[in-house]
Amino acid sequence: MEVVDPQQLGMFTEGELMSVGMDTFIHRIDSTEVIYQPRRKRAKLIGKYLMGDLLGEGSYGKVKEVLDSETLCRRAVKILKKKKLRRIPNGEANVKKEIQLLRRLRHKNVIQLVDVLYNEEKQKMYMVMEYCVCGMQEMLDSVPEKRFPVCQAHGYFCQLIDGLEYLHSQGIVHKDIKPGNLLLTTGGTLKISDLGVAEALHPFAADDTCRTSQGSPAFQPPEIANGLDTFSGFKVDIWSAGVTLYNITTGLYPFEGDNIYKLFENIGKGSYAIPGDCGPPLSDLLKGMLEYEPAKRFSIRQIRQHSWFRKKHPPAEAPVPIPPSPDTKDRWRSMTVVPYLEDLHGADEDEDLFDIEDDIIYTQDFTVPGQVPEEEASHNGQRRGLPKAVCMNGTEAAQLSTKSRAEGRAPNPARKACSASSKIRRLSACKQQ
């Protein structure tokens, strides 16, 4: 084909351009004929944790799935940006308080904090938690009735009371019990989460009196709706648990309003109706937990002794299953770290194939690490110290990083047969305790 000078094309009309061969290198194709290559998922490591896909996002930050490269346990990490926390009232204080509380709590029905990582340079905090497959609110939203069968609701409620009793025994008032803060594992274990607005009572406090509340409006008791200066913290949790039980068994809320002012007005009056299909035992329990006067409201001991709580409820309806993943529609909620794991395991070791967030990740503290002497050669063979940054567990980050890069360049065919977990650990520049 004859090559045409581009400067001469402006002298031709459209018809003349076609005659000189423009149609031979300008093609129009339908979008259905285009085959897009999927974007390669680059592996990203935060300390010893391999990052997966997004699980959810809230006002405080994002939650992603991660894999512990040492234990191969599935975890969830809450990623918090200090810049964003400053824009939220009491944001930083709530996060630090939640970390302090979770560090000393150990119960099967309370979410466990596994690790805390802090990135000084990017001003990011990573709260590594045990993995929960789904939230209770997500399960309720997945069915038209917006409720659980009585047998399933009873099982979840009993676990909620177990976890709540443990928190109260530790002198902690949750203040925000609701389905949105109750998570579930694949085995059906309920976990109380989000202790950001919780309050730890003084060890020598005479009672459970509280003065502040930041919980969700629909789950607040009349004493808070009416603006009382002080109130019983434990009875606030009992009320919120009662509203939660009402919601998961009926699909409704005892109090509603077009806006928060109308909602608080209705809560302050204390008038509500219980659907007739709840039955006398459940209705009596709800009335005891939603008692207007805090002094007359049920205690956890009274809830445990109630006939509806103690009764064994046979399954009359099919239980609400864990819904498919909202993004991938995966009904099994498979591990989202698998594509990243395959990338590390299947590809040659190259620095361009993975990302390490930083050479140094500070753990379990908000301060910069200490310094240790770096050896410097002298005339008599002895070495003197220069400062060298280290990880919180004493690992020399720069030395590990250099060693990792040197190993990656060394030709050794046997290394390709290593397991995925050992490869992740070798790529991680800074081991965590």
Rank of each mutant, 00 (worst) to 15 (best):
E2V: 11
V3A: 12
G10Y: 08
M11T: 09
E16Q: 08
L17T: 15
M18D: 01
M18Q: 09
D23G: 13
R28G: 03
I29F: 01
D30A: 15
T32V: 11
Y36G: 13
Y36A: 03
Q37S: 10
P38H: 07
R39Q: 01
R40F: 10
R40A: 15
K41H: 12
K41V: 10
K41I: 04
A43R: 15
K44T: 04
L45G: 09
L45T: 09
L54K: 15
E57K: 07
G58F: 00
G58M: 01
G61R: 01
G61P: 05
V63L: 02
K64S: 13
E65M: 02
V66G: 04
V66Q: 07
D68P: 06
L72K: 06
R75V: 09
V77R: 02
K78G: 01
K82C: 09
K83C: 11
L85V: 08
R86D: 15
R87T: 12
I88C: 06
P89Q: 11
G91F: 05
G91P: 15
E92T: 15
A93H: 15
K96P: 02
K97V: 06
K97L: 04
I99F: 15
L102W: 08
R103Q: 09
L105P: 03
H107A: 05
N109H: 00
N109M: 03
I111W: 00
V114A: 04
D115R: 13
V116P: 05
L117A: 09
Y118W: 02
N119M: 02
E120P: 11
E120N: 15
K122V: 04
K124Y: 09
M125L: 06
M125V: 04
Y126T: 00
M129L: 03
Y131Q: 00
Y131I: 08
C132I: 10
M136Y: 00
M136S: 01
M139G: 03
E145H: 10
E145L: 08
F148D: 00
P149Y: 00
V150Q: 01
V150S: 02
Q152S: 03
A153R: 01
A153F: 01
D162E: 01
L167E: 00
H168F: 04
S169P: 02
Q170T: 01
Q170W: 08
G171R: 09
H174P: 01
K178P: 00
G180P: 04
N181Y: 00
L182T: 07
L182P: 00
L182V: 05
T185W: 02
T186C: 08
G188Y: 15
L190V: 06
K191I: 08
I192F: 07
I192V: 10
S193I: 08
L195I: 12
A200D: 04
A200H: 12
L201P: 10
L201F: 04
H202G: 10
F204L: 08
A205R: 09
A205V: 07
A206E: 01
C210L: 02
T212E: 15
T212Y: 11
G215N: 12
P217H: 02
F219A: 02
Q220H: 04
A225S: 06
T230K: 09
G233V: 02
F234D: 08
K235C: 11
V236S: 11
I238F: 01
S240N: 07
V243D: 00
V243E: 01
V243R: 01
L245T: 00
L245C: 01
L245V: 02
Y246I: 07
Y246R: 01
Y246V: 05
T249G: 01
T249S: 09
T249P: 00
T250L: 12
G251C: 00
Y253G: 04
P254F: 02
F255I: 10
G257A: 09
D258H: 15
I267P: 01
K269Y: 10
A273G: 03
D277G: 08
C278N: 07
C278M: 11
C278F: 04
G279V: 04
G279C: 03
P281T: 12
P281N: 15
D284V: 03
K287Y: 04
G288A: 05
G288C: 06
L290V: 03
Y292R: 08
Q302H: 07
Q302L: 12
R304L: 06
Q305L: 14
Q305I: 13
H306C: 05
F309D: 00
F309V: 01
K311V: 04
K312A: 09
P315D: 13
P315A: 06
A316W: 02
P324G: 10
S325G: 05
D327V: 10
R331N: 10
R331D: 09
W332E: 15
W332R: 13
R333Y: 13
S334P: 11
M335T: 12
T336I: 10
V337R: 03
V338P: 13
P339R: 08
L341C: 11
L341R: 08
E342P: 13
E342N: 11
E342Q: 09
D343P: 10
D343Y: 09
L344R: 12
A347L: 12
F354A: 13
D355I: 08
D355S: 12
D359G: 10
I360F: 04
I360L: 07
T363N: 06
Q364G: 03
Q364L: 10
F366M: 12
T367G: 15
V368H: 06
V368Q: 04
Q371D: 11
Q371I: 13
P373R: 04
P373Q: 13
E375C: 10
H379M: 13
G381P: 15
G381A: 07
Q382E: 08
Q382Y: 09
Q382L: 10
L386V: 06
L386C: 10
K388P: 05
A389D: 08
C391T: 05
C391W: 04
N393H: 13
G394Q: 10
T395V: 06
A398L: 08
Q399C: 09
Q399G: 13
L400N: 15
S401I: 12
S404I: 08
S404K: 14
S404T: 09
R405D: 05
R405P: 09
A406D: 11
E407Q: 04
R409S: 06
A410T: 04
P413I: 14
R415H: 14
K416H: 11
K416N: 05
S419D: 07
S419L: 08
S421K: 12
S421E: 14
S422R: 12
R425S: 13
L427K: 13
A429Q: 14
Q432R: 14
Q432W: 14
